[in-house]
Design a binder for these strands. Structure first.
Length: 202
DNA sequence: TACTGGATCCCT
DNA sequence: GGGATCCAGTAT
């Protein structure tokens, strides 16, 4: 499959603006073993402010640290982190240098490399649970800390344009699993494609 | 040097 | 509803 890569300029806007734009686009990870590609169906924006309140649900809220450094990079790189000691989450860094913003990819619909995805997930047949969650899609697409800070203008990982054959409805809700965030808990920064079976539950 | 808890997942 | 599993961040 031929993919048209997003240009650097596409990552200069804020996370909350880019998060819904990523829906329907392809996330591609090219490895020696397989080319993984998935249609992004669910995202969450992190960082910045909403109604004048800082996003205390973001890793960037406490400032630049060793772990969160990629979030403060200029938009257009990947931020991968280890969660609960056993899973990984992949984010698209956005905005100008120092902004501390990123879009978490919460779910994808497998497009290419499906056999390898099933192997990575130890599953025998295609089901939504293969990639309907941030940890699941990373395991399926073999995304680990080895991919942290990758430049999205490179060949290994990138976002590709996709033309939607039919218009899709985008739903906007508060984000998931950030009850610890006093302010950010209610920010309407989760976006997903309505009725898509690969969207995570909750 | 010790402690705490998490942008999750899976099984019970 | 709870356990797995480990490291960054924070407190001693």
């Amino acid at each position: 499959m031929i993919y048209t890569k997003w240009p650097t300029a596409a990552y200069s806007a804020s996370a909350q603006d880019i998060a819904p734009c990523l829906l329907g686009q392809y996330l591609v990870h090219q490895t020696e073993r397989a080319v993984y590609a998935g249609r992004i169906v669910e995202t969450e924006a992190y960082g910045g402010t909403y109604n004048g309140k800082a996003d205390d649900g973001s890793h960037a809220f406490h400032g630049l640290t060793k772990r969160t450094a990629p979030m403060f990079h200029q938009g257009g790189i990947v931020y991968v982190y280890l969660i609960y000691g056993m899973y990984h989450c992949v984010n698209i860094v956005t905005g100008p240098e120092g902004a501390g913003q990123a879009v978490l990819i919460r779910a994808i619909e497998p497009v290419e490399g499906i056999e390898a995805m099933l192997e990575n997930r130890h599953m025998m047949q295609m089901k939504p649970k293969v990639t309907n969650g941030p940890g699941k899609l990373c395991q399926a697409m073999n995304i680990t800390l080895a991919q942290n800070q990758l430049d999205l203008t490179g060949q290994e990982m990138f976002v590709a344009r996709a033309v939607e054959k039919q218009p899709v409805s985008i739903i906007c809700t508060p984000r998931i699993h950030i009850d610890y965030a006093v302010n950010g808990k209610s920010f309407p920064w989760r976006f997903y494609i309505q009725h898509n079976p690969y969207v995570s539950k909750a």
